[in-house]
Amino acid sequence: MSDQTQIKARSPFAEAFEMFRRNHAAVAGLVVLLLIVAVAILGPFLYPGNPFDMVWAPFTPPGQEGYLLGTDYLGRDILSLLIHGAKVSLTVGLAAAFVTVTIGITVGALAGFYRGLIEEALMRFTEFFQVLPTLLFSMVIVALFGASLTMITIAIGLVSWPAVARITRAEFLRIRELEYVTAARAGGVRNGGLIFKVILPNALPPIIVQAALMVGSAILFEAGLSFLGLTDPNVASWGQIIGSNREYILDASYTVTVPGVAIFVTVLAISLVGDGLNDALNPKLRQR
């Protein structure tokens, strides 16, 4: 009986963490993701040197001559390319998701908060961006302004934000009518304060989930661009390994399948974590 007195109110964070912990798939995804991050950070120290250097005869099959994943058509060590590519994929993925979310939140928050003409204009603007096929649009940006990693990141962000803007706007439309917002307004909080301090924190959960998924999409996006050869040619990336080796699938299919597995596993892990966050941050959804 004395147990009952020990029950304390838990913080929402602790509750969300508990929810997340119970989702085994999400925890597994998180573990895999952390491993990949560790490889991306520590890998270049364990595998120093330029991954573009020729180390052995081209098309050495995996496991032979000490090359765990074999060599590609230029005799480069695929494992080394993958390890160095991990950093690029993750960095571009995170940075592009950040750009996406920043633009998306700004547009969505302004549209949802101010309503009226501003909302109309911003949503038309959003619809316009949804009409342009994302990959083609980013290809055009990269083609016109150069294929540096920074430009690729900006390009991915510029074409991906509409989804975030829509979610943010929907949340703002819902929350701005709630009593605590009216109360804050009556209490003299200015518009800027209402947007950033009152509404935005409460609108964040679905945006966080979307942001997590955006990292996955951005990684896929970067892989697609570098598969097409639209990337910095001096930086190893996963899509680029596949793109440059794809003419040799008859002789050495592992040069293409293995890097694909790396992309697949990373994005899968991110999406499992995203699902877990979704369940953890929207407990109401879970009860359905």
């Binding site: 996955g216 896929l220 892989a223 697609g224 598969f227 899509g239 596949i242 793109g243 794809r246 699938i249 299919s253 293409v256 399948t257 694909g260 992309i263 697949f264 596993v265 994005v267 899968l268 999406s271 499992l272």
Partner: peptide, 18 residues
């Protein structure tokens, strides 16, 4: 659904091609 989201489409294509 998980597979469809996570697999890069060009990779799926190459796998089917092989």
């Amino acid at each position: 659904a998980l597979f469809g989201y996570a697999a890069p489409v060009f990779w799926t294509g190459i796998l089917l091609l092989i």
